[in-house]
Nucleic acid binder design. Sequence first.
RNA 1: GGGCGUUUAGCUCAGUUGGCUAGAGCGCAUCCUUCACACGGAUGAGGUCACAGGUUCGAGUCCUGUAACGCCCACCA
Length: 1136
Amino acid sequence: MSNGGSYDPHAVEPEIYRFWEQGGYFHATPNPAKPPYVIDIPLPNVTGALHLGHALNNTLQDILIRRARMRGFETLWMPGTDHAGIATQAVVEKRLKEEQNLTRHELGREGLVRKIWEWKEEYGSRILQQLRRMGCSCDWERTRFTLDEVCARAVYEVFFQWFKAGLIYRGLRLVNWDAHLQTAVADDEIIHETVKGHLWHYRYPILPDEPAEPSTVLARAVAPEAKPGVDYLVIATTRPETMLGDTAVAVHPDDPRYKHLVGRHCLLPLMNRPIPIIADAELVNPEFGTGCVKVTPAHDPNDYAFSQRHSEARPINILTPDGKINENGGPYAGLDRYAARTKVVADLEALGLMEKVEDYETEIGHSDRSKTPIEPMLSEQWFVKMGDLAETAMEAVRDGRVRFFPERYAKTYLDWLGEKRDWCISRQLWWGHRIPVWHARLRVRDAERRAAGQRVSDWPQRLVADFRTALERYGAAAGCASDFWVEMAADDPSACFVCARSEKARQELAGIESRVHRARNVGLFGNDPPRAVEIAIGDPRHGPDQAVRGLLLQFEQDPDVLDTWFSSALWPFSTLGWPHEEGARGQGVKRSSDGAPSAPRPLGPSAPSPADLDYFYPTTVLVTAREIITLWVARMVLTGLHFTGRVPFSHVYIHPNIQDGQGRRMSKSLGNGVDPLDIIELYGTDALRFTMAQMATETQDARMPVKRTKLPDGREINTSDRFEPARNFCNKLWQAATGFILPNLTVAADGPSADPSRDREGAVRTPDSEVRRSAHGGTPSPDTEVRRHMDARPLRAENLAIEDRWILSRLGACIREADRCFERYQISDVADTLRTFFWGDFCDWYLELVKPRLYDSADSQGARASDSPPSQGGVGGGSGFAPADGGHPPVVLPERGDCDSAAVARQVLAWVLDQSLRLLHPLMPFVTEALWKKLGEAAPRRGLTETRDAEPALIAAAWPDAATYTRDAAVEREMAALQDVIRALRDTLARINTSRAAAKTPAIGKLPHAIIRADNETAAGLRRQRTVLLRLGRCERLEIGADVAKPAESATQVLAGGVEVYVPLAGLMDLATERQRLQKERDTLRGHIERLTGKLANEDFVARAPAAVVEQERARLAEMRARYTTLERNLADLDD
RNA sequence: GGGCGUUUAGCUCAGUUGGCUAGAGCGCAUCCUUCACACGGAUGAGGUCACAGGUUCGAGUCCUGUAACGCCCACCA
């Protein structure tokens, strides 16, 4: 059997995933008998397709979730997608343009939003389907979308509460404007690129103290005798068109060149506007350029900050939303900003003001989405005040309620929050949660105005108060009394903002909006001024009895939507149905329970209950990459603390980013991305996952060399050799189980002789295909029907051979180490630990050691063994097989070939495989689950000191408990000695064959004769392992003893503990090579001895190093010296 | 410019609180199609731990500096 038995992931994976999903293993419900373990998925964009970063991120989450499930936690992995404002709208807009040649403006807001929903319904679940292929055990029944009803309710509740508390405000701020998409872009969505540009130097004429005509001033500034600092100032800029919005020139307060000019004015050329010369140490670096800075507060962040410090330099916005010069740009109005730049430069030149133009490289911010240059622009936006919110979030990390793994990332978090920059939450988009605020413009009725007489100053306040009262009454009648909140606008006494909390309240406001709209339309046909809606008339329900003081001239919902991160910031509790309080409950949920929602928004499949929130919040750990520590992690902590009083998670596990072989980001534009689905196709899901686990080190980046390859279907894809080791490991696991362990557990019911599939040695050879067929629940072949499964019986220490005790000791160590790494989120170490144990200890050694017991016994079937239980009987304690006192009792080995020995071996094999599958399951869920089924059929009852029926599904089986295994140092030492001897024998054989190949003589398969010299005790131990030594050491004849003679012309090896291995070389190989090897070995050894001797001769070392270290070094030196002597002697013997 | 990280075998990476004769996988070399596995087994070669100082009995590990690379954040008219 060769390739035919290789693991074929595609034959296994879909079926296994179905088995889990149909078994309901992914679904979590509050269960008081278990502690909860919860992970929120870092929301992929609905537009997203799975990339390698997702593969890593989700593999790690699934690993943690699966292990927690096995450890008895009620595990919830909350899946969902993010509506991803700009990204999604851009995708659909692009399609719209391509397919129907329509812009969003032509389609209109409602039409576009409907289109996006349609798109979302069709393609939005793609990434979740891909996660299923990765084996992710998310609770799909709870899948949420940031725009669905459940999430929306939380969004509006949070907005309302913050708005009411004054934490959300409207402010004029400089935002990063994407003129192409016509939206503000977050700082984090900007990529800076170096662009070749120019630095223009030109003159601003200085205005004389006495009044003067602009033309005079200009003429003086360009006159041949004009002097800088007297008649003009030279400024330099990379963006000359912004001068149209200049409102000051800044100089450094200590700059002797300009000190005398502070307080005077320049003439802004082209606009002919006087602008002040202001001293400012922060903005101006006197060393740079001319030391004069033109100030454009509306279009430059630093200048904006400057204008905050100097009120005389008020910002003037010169741009329209689509990047043209607006009416403030005088003659340039209507020009595109780049056309304006050319014209401004030309005009300055024509005026003779241009001094020089230099080539210049500068970093320009580009929108990550549209790839067009960002224009800093002043506009009205909604903000969240970060001060206190940020402070609470910082405190949670400082006091350890939230811990980062690796720890260093706490710094990123704290540094960012420490800046306490207010969070701009409005986006000029149509796709997202619409800001639940209506802009109202009020006017006092003429009758009221007359009645109020001269006291006009408090009209606005009284009007807003009236409006508030009117809305409250209105709300009370409509059943949403506490769902409105009115705030006055800061900059306009006749304006105010109305925020709505519930869906009902929003509908009512929309109703008012449409009435105002209608009224105004009516007004267009009537007299001037247009009629408006009287504030108190609202609804016939409350009668016409109010005193009507004011009119609602304008009432419109804010056109913007919320920043995508606003809804994701609430994810940990919004998905669990927060807020559950009656007062805050919106109309949406009630409608959902009736079925038939009327809104286009689809409801989540199951609405969470208050019990869900109580039980599953806070979550356990957040697994993510470092770039969203600020965007997402910090904001979740801040909202969680503010609205639930508790941190949303206690651990944040930050994993590396995957780069290509050259350390570059994987990206579409570079074409160096690896598609996880291609890898699944090529290598299988488990190989992908295991590789991901191995890459999850504590570094910030992990590299994956990428290469092109052609698939059988002709597609060219990117892949990497990095996946091969994991693929090989999957296969190793599969081969060891299906090719060796399982066939040797099952035995024919009617005895060995009747079974044609048994070979000469009595081992059971089951064709792999049969095992597969039977394990997969297909029609059992006649052969498998007569096959009996293994029986397990309680074992005692005396039943066990040394290799049994050794592998169990190693298994215990492996579990302990894996647990330790898991606690620290060192997943790559978990992967290495498990791989080393299974491949290195279990397959390379234990399976080989146990073969003689299985093959060489005449009646090595479990049926016989189970018929004659051992006389000792009884169940050993649960504490393993190592002696409690740490001593080393004699290992009484049954004779090789003893039937008990074979039965015990089978039981240990089944058990170690059982435990290994459990340990590997979180990393490689598919192969392990598939093998678990097979193992369940071959050995339905398993265990060591106690036996019990195996759990039906590995996904829900118990995680191994390290406490049931005691480390047996003595047995591990003894095994190490045995392994040393075997390696020595193999090494000698390999050297002989290498030398024979060089001499063109045929290789020998075995060593004809070998002699092992060791002290009496060791020799006795080795003699008991004679069968093993002959087999694994590949020799035909073996002498073991304390005083065996070394034959002349022998290869010699000196091992730890003074054990020596001799192999007579006469006729096998030439002695010169052997002599060379020994000399080389002796020389290295001499080097070590010299260094160590020097160290021990150092009095400081002996005096200051810990005694144990000194002792250890002395022992090592003694050992080396002994080896050295033996080596010398062996060399001398060779020379004889 | 600020912060963080990386630099160890040809490649990708481990190396916990300093005790190291520096490890793994891949690749390489040699042998083995022997009976679970060639997606395998066995054996071996391969490293002045980026550089320069310092602390220490002892430094791959701690400190300082330098260089290269990378990531994040902020940005200079």
